[in-house]
Design a protein around this nucleic acid. Structure first.
Lengths: 325, 325
DNA sequence: TCAAAAGTGTTATCCTTACACCCATGT
DNA sequence: ACATGGGTGTAAGGATAACACTTTTGA
């Protein structure tokens, strides 16, 4: 059942570590000191030193950033040649196992800075994903026209694909009557990559006709395939929010319902209906009032709540299944 | 950002290849000829020979089994030491990337047999997962008593865990008022493994007190961690059914609605409500009548349907979102 | 004529979405 | 007093789950 040759290869762990600052989702970026674009923190997987991936991950994150991450989840294992190797400084990993981790912003960022790491707003890398101030201009100004011509250039579905470029564009970007689905972050990034519209595609040698026009850069690029891993992380987190109580890993011990809503909205990249959100939170009994009040920031004081950790032991899969609004 | 040493390690691809025979879900098993338990087909990942995992997977499956798989999806990357290394014949892979693939039963199984592979009913490995003939006896006779004492032996949550053994048991196996969730296949297998109740746990050196009693074996064991990968595959397929039209990869070109229902039921491991299922299928317009009738097998003849491939291009994410019944 | 499976009609309930108004504080 | 955000009641519409009965064939 086994082939004759086996090539030894090296494995990297790459972590998308998310934290929250007010209503801004942050991602831990590493390697800001080096020349070239920043990346996600990553480290080698040493099977002899670490019994599992998760242990290895927690270890190298703690070492490199003095951060203790709470929730950790495997995302995907990326192994494409060509999306990793062509970067400026050679990366020996042929394969990287991507992880999502959630944490709270540290009080003190000296350790981070010493390690050449810092938290960055994640929408800098994906400006088209933030719909909180309305439909992002960049979509109609730049992205959709460019993707439109890219789709026209090949009207039939490419080999190995069910959908044509135009159909993929329709679902991913909510064109031609399709709704915008905030969870399709990866599909959107992949389309932009294939169309040669993100910096990484040019770097990897995809010289799409459109790319030569040198449009305004679509979001900040990242090293290797790290922006793809970040896209996967955002997509997963946006989905997970709806069926697991993971938001609370990002919240302070006590919070108001509006703060909770702002956090969910920041991740989902869109606004939610206030009353419906509150009813939802109430119905799931995920939180309980502390009895305290928040000293208002310009309005009526809000009641403070805390996450009821017991729910995890009470009911099977509680999350905030927010819908259309 | 990188550690000083990097150990070269080898990567295996392991495939859970599913097909259907009437109302029996089958899994392709390999290595039946060798001594020891059977396993899933697997092969090394050669980064120089294959550009992506998926290409590598399709290649080695085609080579080893003369099977053309349709739908392919990455499941998870397993890297635990101790769940792989202790097997009888040494396996050099430290890491295996698990894949789910769907196919149709070949007319001719000579090529399979020549490769030492054959399709096996998957419930042989997970007898407690099939509720179509009512609640499986093995649950109350063997599994729950054994897991009950295992839970009593450690009433507090283990380090690094939120839930106690008893709470995990409650959710995974639907005890103490919790409902049985057919998607929790992996959670159930993991509990049995931790409790030392499956053969693989003993083989890996977990000498749980209970294991010494040598209970009737709980399902057929598999090589390495292959039963864990299969559990992941079943769980994923059971979940995916509900939001993507993947069943049709397992169906013949034309089928009756009852055959479609039997297939879904076989995968989900439980019966569905006939009228509601039909209404659901109708509402999603996933199928269209061919106009033909199936010559009845002991009853009124049934109308034949085919999958409407166009739906994939029409609507975003069609699946059979069947609920309680 | 009877068994076996195909196929249909209807109702109660809950959940989702939407709408509009009142309340308590700081400036 | 007014601006700002906190907080609530209720109704329409759709989806879900449950109910039982009729139809068409082969033996």
């Amino acid at each position: 059942m086994s082939g004759p040759r086996r090539t030894p290869i090296e494995i990297g762990l790459t972590a998308a570590i998310v934290a929250m600052e007010k209503a801004t989702p942050l991602i831990l970026a590493a390697g800001a000191d080096a020349r070239g674009p920043i990346g996600l923190p990553s480290g080698p997987f040493e099977p002899l030193a670490h019994r599992t991936f998760e242990i290895a991950l927690r270890n190298f994150v703690a070492e490199q950033t003095a951060l203790a991450v709470g929730y950790v989840e495997q995302l995907y294992t990326f192994g494409d040649r060509g999306r990793h190797a062509r970067a400026e400084d050679a990366d020996p990993h042929v394969l990287s196992v991507g992880y999502l981790a959630l944490t709270r912003l540290p009080d003190e960022d000296a350790a981070l800075i010493a390690a050449g790491a810092r938290f960055e707003p994640w929408y800098r890398f994906f400006p088209w994903e933030d719909w909180r101030d309305g439909r992002p201009k960049i979509l109609d100004d730049t992205i959709l026209p460019a993707l439109g011509s890219w789709a026209k250039a090949a009207p039939r579905a490419e080999p190995g694909r069910v959908l044509s470029r135009r159909e993929r564009l329709r679902f991913a970007f909510g064109v031609e009557g399709s709704p915008w689905d905030e969870e399709k972050v990866l599909e959107r990034y992949e389309l932009l990559y294939e169309a040669g519209l993100v910096e990484e595609a040019r770097r990897d040698g995809r010289e799409a006709a459109l790319a030569r026009k040198t449009l305004a850069p679509l979001g900040e690029p990242m090293r290797f395939d790290h922006r793809r891993i970040l896209a996967t992380a955002i997509a997963r987190l946006r989905a997970k929010l709806k069926y697991r109580p993971v938001v609370f890993e990002l919240m302070a011990e006590e919070f108001t319902l509006t703060e909770l809503q702002r956090t969910v909205e920041a991740i989902a990249g869109r606004h939610l209906h206030k009353q419906n959100f509150r009813r939802l939170v109430e119905a799931t009994s995920l939180v309980e009032p502390t009895g305290e009040m928040a000293t208002a920031t310009g309005g009526r004081p809000a009641a403070l709540y805390r996450f009821r950790r017991e729910v995890v032991a009470e009911r099977p899969s509680p999350g905030l299944r927010f819908g259309a609004r």
